[in-house]
């Protein structure tokens, strides 16, 4: 998946007023069966978006105008708790979201999101509510701004809320850097550590093999 740099976006935001939304709700098990990293948008919130007979559920927020074009999700406390399935991030991303704003996140989801260049923004519960109220009052017309350079969320009415993101992830998102490439900048540290460790804790390895520069290149193994 090609990474896009994330700097600043101003978009429609959908308030999903539910607590503890788990990863099963974000993408039910039956919707995650593809050996790829794309095309999961259809399965997003499947059991909420569709009725048992497969028809759209008209009351669900993402089935209402203009929220079906939302790129920002305003969520409740402990959003995306549950499993480590990274598909939860891909489903949100494939559907078209680029950012979720919530008072707290399931922590595996949180780090999966950052690694995929998908921004999880933590701001206080009351503030999420206030932004959601403003969005609803404007019937979705009022856009929300998320600025990763300044680490600020701006509500439709112009209120600003600061947020924090771990700096190494923020940089990687601004630069659209893939995490393996980022780590392999420290290849020498890895080689030194592992070769020392293979002597020190030999019981944790299976045999005396050492690693070197070539171990990171195709054709070595």
């Amino acid at each position: 998946m090609e990474r896009k740099p994330f700097r600043k976006l101003t978009e429609i935001a959908a308030p999903l007023r539910r607590l503890n939304v788990d990863t099963d709700a974000i993408i039910p098990g039956a919707q995650l069966l593809k050996v790829t990293k794309g095309g999961f948008g259809q399965g997003l919130f499947y059991n909420w978006r569709y009725k048992e007979n497969g028809e759209e559920e008209p009351d669900f927020i993402l089935n209402k105008a203009p929220y079906q074009h939302a790129k920002i999700l305003l969520a409740g406390h402990n959003f995306a708790c549950g499993s480590s399935r990274e598909v939860a991030v891909w489903a949100l991303r494939d559907y078209g979201f680029r950012c979720v704003i919530a008072p707290s996140f399931g922590n595996i989801f949180y780090s999966n999101a950052l690694k995929n260049g998908f921004l999880p923004v933590v701001i206080a519960e009351d503030d999420v509510e206030r932004i959601s109220d403003e969005v609803e009052a404007s019937q979705g017309a009022g856009k929300v701004t998320v600025d990763l350079e300044k680490c600020r969320v701006v509500s439709p009415g112009g209120c600003e809320y600061a947020f924090e993101v771990p700096e190494n992830y923020r940089q990687a998102m601004l630069d659209a850097l893939d995490p393996i490439a980022a780590t392999l900048r420290f290849k020498d540290d890895i080689i030194a550590f592992q070769n020392r460790d293979r002597d020190r804790r030999s019981w944790a390895y299976f045999g005396p093999r050492k690693i070197d520069d070539d171990s990171f290149n195709m054709g070595d193994v």
Partner: peptide, 21 residues
């Protein structure tokens, strides 16, 4: 021991390490 996503497991397979707080 903790659960990680696919992007992370690829990272572990390729680098032998993981970035964690």
């Amino acid at each position: 021991a903790w659960g990680i996503g696919t992007t992370d497991i690829e990272h572990v397979m390729a680098t032998g390490g993981i970035v964690q707080t």
